[in-house]
Amino acid sequence: MRFVSAEQVARRAGVSRSAVSRTFTPGASVSPATREKVLKAAEELGYHVNDLARGVLNNQSRLVGIVATKPEVGFRAHLTAALTKALIRRGSVPVLINTGQTEEEMLAAQKMLIGHRAEATIILSGSPPESFLDLARRNGQPVVLIGRCEPEADHVRAGNSEASIEAARLLLAAGRRKLAFAGSHSATPSILERQIAFVAEVEHHGFSVQIAHGEDSNYDCGVAAARALLAEGDRPDAIFCANDLIAFGVMDVLRREGGLSIPQDVAVIGFDDVPEAAWLNYGLTTFRQDPLIMAQRAVDLLERRIANPEADQGHDRVVPELVVRQTFVPANVTEV
């Protein structure tokens, strides 16, 4: 593979190699006539500046790593898309690394990014080990976390507790008394926070919560959780689901296998507001995490850290808003 070189542009334009370099260096001194000849030659040849080489010379690049596990699934897919767009607007080059959550896998991803002199790393999955943060600090690489809290790193989190408490209060105010929570065994810190806050609020009002888990935080997990709740005999009249994918599985089992009506027999509330939540087959009432807002907040923290490496850790919290559809309509609230 042979890319067009700056030397070829210089020969076509009839100028020196350094003139080509100055033309494509912001703020460098070059005459208007020379600039015009260089740009014309570059256009004819299809030349583009070698940003990778510049990054090596400057010991940094415009690369920003996005480290995620299963970035194609659920809300994370939309957050990943929003992050790439926000980084491109900033002038960065996003690099997605699909990895696992073990310390070895996380460190392998980080070493790859540091080896390519990535400017920063944004983590969407798993809590990074201390060795990850230590290596980033020693290399001066900013790390931003989304969806989890680490005292040694900048992070953006959803208001999981606030939304879960609101879900409990709204269901109880609607007269629902047999409440359940559908979660997963492989829960992220965010999902665990939702479960803890929901259960605590319901118990605070003197009621108990049935808890059912599937393996992973996806549709199959919702199917397993719903079947477990139906098997207990004393079925719930309301289920708060850790995310929308779980809610979809719960709803399909309640209707197809339980013969139940939603929300007449069982109210269902989700979390995330992925696009499928508005599909006619679901019409899911849920708490909306806006991926565009979450992504921009993460980029803002990144820019803050780059501008001031010694600043205190930035902690941002975005409280989700309830989107009311057909699966549960609180009193005095209009569904969308």
Rank of each mutant, 00 (worst) to 15 (best):
Asp234Ala: 14
Ala238Trp: 01
Glu257Asn: 07
Pro309Gly: 04
Phe240His: 08
His315Tyr: 09
Leu245Glu: 14
Leu280Cys: 00
Leu284Tyr: 01
Asp265Met: 02
Gln195His: 07
Arg288Cys: 00
Ala311Trp: 00
Val199Met: 08
Asp237Ile: 10
Ala307Met: 08
Asp316Cys: 07
Ala247Lys: 08
His205Ala: 13
Arg227Ile: 09
Ile306Met: 13
Arg297Gln: 15
Ala307Arg: 13
Ile269Pro: 06
Phe198Ala: 04
Arg256Cys: 13
Leu245Ala: 06
Ala242Glu: 11
Asn281Leu: 12
Asp300Ser: 09
Gln210Ser: 15
Glu215Gln: 14
Gly206Arg: 07
Val274Asn: 04
Glu201Asn: 03
Cys221Arg: 00
Asn218Val: 13
Val199Phe: 02
Cys241His: 03
Ile269Asp: 03
Val253Trp: 03
Ser208Glu: 12
Phe248Pro: 04
Glu215Ala: 13
Ser186Gly: 05
Ile246Leu: 10
Glu203Gly: 08
Gln289Pro: 00
Glu310Thr: 12
Ala278Val: 03
Ser217Arg: 11
Asp252Tyr: 05
Val209Gln: 08
Ile246Ser: 05
Arg194Leu: 00
Val199Arg: 13
Leu322Ala: 00
Glu257Pro: 00
Leu260Gly: 10
Val268Trp: 04
Arg235Glu: 14
Ser217Glu: 15
Glu201Lys: 01
Leu292Ile: 08
Ile306Thr: 13
Ala238Ser: 11
Pro263Arg: 04
Thr286Val: 05
Ala231Lys: 14
Gly270Cys: 11
Leu260Cys: 07
Gly233Ser: 13
Cys221Gln: 03
Phe248Asp: 07
Val223Ile: 15
Asp290Val: 11
Pro320Ser: 05
Asp316His: 05
Ala247Asn: 07
Gly206Asp: 08
Ala277Pro: 00
Ala212Thr: 09
Leu292Phe: 03
Leu245Asp: 12
Ile239Val: 15
Asp272Ser: 10
Ala224Cys: 06
Arg255Gln: 09
Leu302Tyr: 02
Pro189Asp: 15
Glu276Thr: 05
Asp237Asn: 14
Ala238Met: 10
Val209Pro: 06
Ala247Glu: 07
Asp316Ala: 14
Ile293Asn: 08
Glu321Asn: 15
Ala212His: 08
Leu260Ile: 12
Gln296His: 07
Glu203Thr: 11
Cys221His: 03
Leu245Phe: 05
Asp216Leu: 06
Asp272Cys: 10
Val250Met: 08
Ser217Tyr: 10
Ile246Val: 13
His205Phe: 14
Asn218Pro: 05
Leu301Thr: 11
Leu284Gly: 00
Arg235Phe: 14
Gln195Asp: 05
Ala277Lys: 01
Leu284Ser: 02
Leu192Phe: 07
Ala225His: 06
Ile262Met: 02
Glu232Cys: 07
Ala187Met: 03
Gly249Cys: 13
Arg305Cys: 05
Leu284Met: 01
Cys221Met: 01
Ser190Gln: 04
Asn308Met: 07
Ser217Ile: 08
Ser186Thr: 11
Leu301Tyr: 11
Phe287Met: 10
Glu232Lys: 12
Val268Gly: 06
Leu254Trp: 09
Leu292Glu: 11
Phe248Thr: 11
Gly258Ile: 01
Gly233His: 15
Arg235Asp: 08
Met251Phe: 05
Cys221Trp: 01
Ala311Arg: 10
Ile246Thr: 04
Asp273Leu: 11
Val209Ser: 02
Ala307Gln: 12
Val253His: 06
Ala238Arg: 09
Leu284Arg: 01
Val253Gly: 09
His205Val: 06
Ala295Ser: 04
Arg256Gly: 06
Gly283Ile: 04
